[in-house]
Amino acid sequence: MIWLTWRQHRRQALFTLVALLALAALMIPTGLMMRASYADKGLAECLRVLNAVQPDPGRAGPCSRALNQFADQFNSMSLLGVLFLVLPLIVGLFWGAPLVAREVEQGTHRFAWTQGIGRRQWALVKFGFVAVVAVLVAVVYGLGMSWWVAPLTGAAQQNRFDVFFFDMQGVTPIGYTLFAVALGICAGVYWPRMMPAMAVTLGGFIGLRILLTVLARPHYLPLETRAIPIEGTIGEPGGASGDWIIDKGIRDAGGTMVLPGAQAACGAESARPAGGRCPPLEEFGEGAYNWQLFQPADRFWLFQGIESGIFVALAAVLLYLAVRRIRRVA
């Protein structure tokens, strides 16, 4: 049975391997290039300088320039990353959906299911094989992507929680890929024709991903808030710390929101007229502060775990439904 699965899908496996190698040929050199430039410019040290509570003004200038330079040079690279967002979907469409649908469309299920093996066993072995291969592939490109994207998230001050950057690295691609494959298989069992099965996979995957990303992900864990005094600040509090800022605003001393969605800072004293007070405090009153609602940066891997956990669980449900339904396929 495993032999049949391998023999039937070895061409697909070969294509996948070739595609992965081609991607590696593209990603490894660009990744190395980014890392070399990152090290050359001393960006790791720079980030430490810029993220300090009171940046050293002497070093902040050159460091900002170096970061900007790096960002200009490599920001377009993140477009390459988008490729990896669709990879799970492609695996689902071309590995998952045809698994049963193609068999039924070509009538070969009548051959396969009248041999000595019951179709439930047939389904378990096939689904298992494809799921395992999909996970292996996803591990390779998920972790590979984490390595590749690290300089970008670091230097370009791209938050690792940002929609694309969160989704294309770490362990989430494993969850997405397994889910896409399971959805494809399940769709193929319920609508055993290639086109409908692929359409359901496409729509279902994109729909659920968007829904969860927008509505659920920010609330996987209780949000934290913090108040940052405006008094005495030079620059606005940024996202450099890697926290995922969900909402922000300026509140007055009493805690009432006076300007949602904005942050303020006093700026350098030299830029003000002599004896002038901190402008935002003039505007919003003494004691006004920047308010942030956020998920702390150190929850990144926890969030990765939760997100992939959800998709793995959904995949398990879909596979269970598919195995249960397989005996009804005619």
């Binding site: 049975m1 049949l4 396969a112 041999q115 000595g116």
Partner: peptide
């Protein structure tokens, strides 16, 4: 060969 792998009696 496939038949041999999918059937006990073959």
């Amino acid at each position: 060969q496939l038949g041999g792998r999918m059937n006990r009696r073959w």
